[in-house]
Simulated scan of single mutants.
Amino acid sequence: MRNGIVPVGKRNNALDVIRCIAIVAVVCEHTSSSVFLSGRMQLIFQVFGTLGVPLFVMLTGYLMLDRRFDREYTERYLQNNLLPLFIAAELWNILWYGLSHVIGDTPIALSTALSVAFFYGPSGNGFWYIPMAIGLYLGLPIISKLVHWIDEEKIGQYGWVLVGCALFFGTVIPTCAQFLSIHFPGYYMESVLNMNIFGADVWGSSVWMVYLLLGYSIRRGLFEKVHTGILCVALCVLLVFLYVFHLDAFKHGIAWDPYYANALLVFSAVMLFVLMMRFVDALHFRDEGLPKRVTCWVSRYSFAVYMIHFWILATCLRFIPIETFSMRLFAFVMIFGITFGGSLFFARMLYFIRPSRKWLLLMK
Rank of each mutant, 00 (worst) to 15 (best):
R2N: 12
G4Q: 00
V8N: 15
G9S: 15
L15V: 09
D16S: 15
D16W: 04
R19M: 04
I21L: 07
S33E: 14
F36Q: 01
L37T: 09
G39P: 04
T60C: 15
G61I: 01
G61F: 01
Y62N: 10
L63K: 02
M64V: 04
Y77E: 10
N80Y: 07
P84T: 05
L85D: 05
Y97N: 07
Y97A: 13
L99I: 10
S100F: 06
H101P: 02
V102Y: 06
G104C: 04
L110S: 10
T112V: 15
V116Q: 07
F118G: 14
S123F: 03
F127W: 09
I134Y: 03
Y137S: 03
Y137M: 07
L138Y: 13
P141G: 05
I142E: 01
I142S: 02
S144T: 10
V147Y: 02
H148S: 11
W149S: 08
V163G: 12
A166D: 00
L167I: 15
T171E: 02
V172M: 07
T175S: 14
A177S: 14
L180G: 08
L180D: 13
L180K: 04
S181M: 05
E190K: 07
S191M: 00
S191P: 05
S191H: 01
L213A: 07
F223K: 02
T228R: 08
T228P: 03
L235K: 10
V240Y: 00
F241A: 12
F241R: 04
H246Y: 01
F250Q: 12
G253Y: 04
S268R: 08
S268A: 14
L275H: 10
D287R: 11
G289L: 05
R293L: 10
V294W: 06
Y301S: 13
R318T: 12
F319S: 00
P321Y: 01
F330D: 08
F340P: 06
G342M: 03
A347E: 10
M349C: 14
L360F: 08
L361W: 07
L362E: 00
